[in-house]
Amino acid sequence: MRHHVILRVIAKLGIPFIVLFALYVQFHGDFGPGGGFQAGVIFGAAFILYALIFGLDNALKVAPMNLVITFIAVGLLVFAGVGVARQVSRLRRARRQFRRRTASRHPARRARSRDHGRRGHDRDLLHLRGPGPVAVEFLIGHYNYWIFIFLMMLGFYVVVARGNLVKKIIGLNIFQASVFLLYISIGKVLGGTAPIIIDGGGPVTYSNPLPHVLILTAIVVGVATTALGLSLVIRINEAYGTIEEDEINDMDQEP
């Protein structure tokens, strides 16, 4: 796409701002919920955009493979190291400070603790939202589940019925997405607000944030699975010259 002048110019102009924005999000994490994760995604998006416009070769010059691998490893080490450091350090002060920061990063866990006393909410959700004996009401009242089931079956069907390995991965994604929706819809409380603590605020109804956090993790896992699956497909394509399942099977049978 490097032949398109407009794309090139806009990308060149945009990328620094994207990176800047990522940094902003990162440092804002100190004051409000969220931060590192989103910042990382935005940061990565800048590089992906660059690679899309100027080609993979140029992108690798900017961020060599070795560097990326090292960064991944260091990142993981820092991440895990923070946890370990906290365990090792027995200073109360450090502990208190850390707890405050983690608390602000993960309001979910905290909110969950408050929510705990009222878990009746969650349970009610699965039963009818009111005594509705009529079938129609049952259908409509559970529309989120029907969507979930439909998506799940759709994804499952694609995985089973399609011979194209990439399409299978897409099916897998739909399948997983359906579960994400299930989780999130479970957490929703009618009329609930975002679970942000307002100082001195009285009791407010808020949606259960825990499923969101869980699903955030699950999405990450899903992305990792997709990435791994697709890279496997690339390798398969290199080895077999095709990504159609039946052709691969035929080739495996021959020798």
């Binding site: 929510d115 705990h116 878990r119 909410h121 969650d122 349970r123 959700l125 699965l126 579960v179 299930l182 989780y183 479970i186 825990l210 499923p211």
Partner: peptide, 9 residues
Amino acid sequence: GLIYAMTGT
């Protein structure tokens, strides 16, 4: 997820 919906934990 379903267990969580039923028990809240």
